[in-house]
């Protein structure tokens, strides 16, 4: 947890996937309250804080529950339906909990050409899951995503706040071991 005070210019720009999240973590307390206040100072309008604020909630709790939606709506003077329309538009917000390691495999054209589908298969087999499921040990969720913007390093796999470039079926096992 970053207890170090963040510069307000970047207070809303922290990675939103972390392994050490806690679904019951209190929202908007301590350093997070400070960040919330700092984020608001960066925009002329409260509504604009919605993406950074939601990201901060996901960073803490790992997903966006309806309770989170209601809290955010209340804090930003929006309706819960509005917040839901936002969380459901932007695909990085998770509508349900995921494993400790959220493994996102790019299967867009650049990675697809280089065998992304096989990487997905290998990852699913190695974690014993189906797409989107949490593995039995609670550690992994594997999903396919669209282009991660690193296409020259296919296949691109993002695990929480880390990017793994040039993943091949042969390196999948090592990748998973490295995570533990």
């Amino acid at each position: 947890m970053s207890e170090r005070k963040l510069h307000p210019a970047v207070a809303g720009a922290q990675p939103m996937y972390r392994a050490e999240n806690d679904p019951d973590a209190p929202l908007f307390e301590g350093a997070y309250k400070q960040r919330f206040d700092d984020i608001l100072t960066r925009y002329p309008d409260k509504r604009a804080a919605i993406l950074p604020v939601l990201a901060m909630c996901q960073e803490l709790r790992g997903w966006i529950s309806s309770e989170t939606i209601e809290r955010v709506a209340e804090l930003l003077d929006l309706t819960p339906a509005y917040v839901l329309s936002i969380t459901s538009f932007y695909t990085m917000f998770r509508p349900q909990p995921v494993g400790k390691y959220l493994i996102q495999v790019c299967t867009s054209i650049g990675c697809d050409l280089c065998g992304a589908e096989n990487v997905v298969e290998k990852l699913l087999a190695a974690t014993g899951t189906r797409t989107g499921e949490i593995s039995e040990d609670g550690l992994y969720t594997v999903i396919e995503v669209e282009c991660l913007g690193a296409c020259g390093f296919a296949t691109v796999v993002q695990v929480n706040e880390r990017v793994y470039e040039s993943v091949k079926t042969e390196t999948v096992t090592r990748l998973l071991e490295e995570l533990r």
Binding site: T79, A81, Y82, S88
Partner: peptide, 8 residues
């Protein structure tokens, strides 16, 4: 604004 487009 209680009615919204959800998903995309």
């Amino acid at each position: 604004p209680v009615l919204q487009v959800v998903q995309r």
